[in-house]
Design a protein around this nucleic acid. Sequence first.
DNA 1: TACAGTTACTGAACATGTTCAAAATATTTC
DNA 2: GAAATATTTTGAACATGTTCAGTAACTGTA
Lengths: 240, 240
Amino acid sequence: MFNKTASTPKAHLTRSHLLSTALRVFRERGLESVTMRDLAAAAGASLGAAYYYFPSKEAIIQAYYDDVQAEHARRLTAAISETKLDLKGRLCAAFHSKLDILQGDRRLLGALFRYTGEPQHPLSALGAGTRQNRQQSMSVFKTAIGDERLPDDVRAILPVALWGLHMGILLYFIYDESAEQQRTRRLVDGVLTLLVRFLSLVKLPILKPVRGSVLTLLRDAGLLPESDSPHLLFSKELQP
Amino acid sequence: MFNKTASTPKAHLTRSHLLSTALRVFRERGLESVTMRDLAAAAGASLGAAYYYFPSKEAIIQAYYDDVQAEHARRLTAAISETKLDLKGRLCAAFHSKLDILQGDRRLLGALFRYTGEPQHPLSALGAGTRQNRQQSMSVFKTAIGDERLPDDVRAILPVALWGLHMGILLYFIYDESAEQQRTRRLVDGVLTLLVRFLSLVKLPILKPVRGSVLTLLRDAGLLPESDSPHLLFSKELQP
DNA sequence: TACAGTTACTGAACATGTTCAAAATATTTC
DNA sequence: GAAATATTTTGAACATGTTCAGTAACTGTA
């Protein structure tokens, strides 16, 4: 992820000009109706130049999403250091700040899900090629969890669970046609309220065995980073 | 969904010949590497003929998936009427029979998720264009639930929840590289065991208020078929 | 500065999904 | 059965994402 080609200041300039122009045009006219030739022309570059910096049209959106992730991490850190928030508050900050960033770009977001069903594709949202993205995203949620007092097993599951939840929320967000996507905001609040209540419940030592069986299940499925036999979700890239 | 053009027996014949040939070639060589020209040639038809019956390449896979759904309903009904199964057994039958049908076609399955992030696309897995598919799938799960004694609110949520779970399992299945996807099978068993245990727990009248808040949340989000303000997931098609 | 090597860019050519006007074939109507 | 109509089939033409062999511009070295 991140900047691929940027050996020279000039290259960096061209690349970011290309990227920002592309995003502007995408926002104006949507993903589908803008051709790579349009993009190149709008940026005053040649078709080949666009492909020199971005391996595909979707890769441009991925590059944008890389920026989004960085911005997300920044905002959450800021929000947390500014104010003294409880777990609910920190999780709300994590989810809502992400939505804030993406508010105007719902149409672009769809591209991130395009290759979800194709494990081998480098841009598959669940594939090896986007592993770093996932890990970065989970580390944002780890920040939100902070040093909250939680049993170890819950602590192991929570970041992955939150990442998965957040992916689901993004999908809901894309489909949400309510004014300014207020519906998604309410859903986030509702889900997080329930989640926090749920967490303080499952913390109780009586429920340790129940938690254990869930943990075992997820571990066996390779859905936890620490698993011995990880699922593709966490596996290293095939060709490093 | 289902057969689009089939006014004439001849048309029906051509269409199903095209479809079965396409699936054979797709299975042999994968989705990507087979062009529409290849398909037409393999079926002894012209390129235009293929497009006369299927609006797009992905639509062929959708047509296949329609058949899968029909077969799924058939198999579950058969399994249930043959033997006296408990809820766990019926749910297992529902999930595993689906996987049985799809076992050899994991590569094709990915296409179903391609437009998940594009609400307007007719093949979006969550869009208006595939509403019937979802409802058919949910009705299969309703069959599995049967007349199991359950509180009304749980009964309202369960089919949607099972459908969502089943979509997730399909994604896991696509990514599962274990021998014969045994891992997915174990995951299904594990999840369903937990689910059934969970269900008998939440049935307790003491938990009615908790269930109520979940129900309200989902209803507000439009994620239940009965909602007043339904989400796109359940909304009618835009152009009927 | 001249040269070598690297980086950045160019645009023609290609591959392939999709469209569509026209032709072929089948069906209905009289 | 002939004309009219509807259905099915054809393949050339188009649009657009992507590749790639080449060219230009730059950077460091002697």
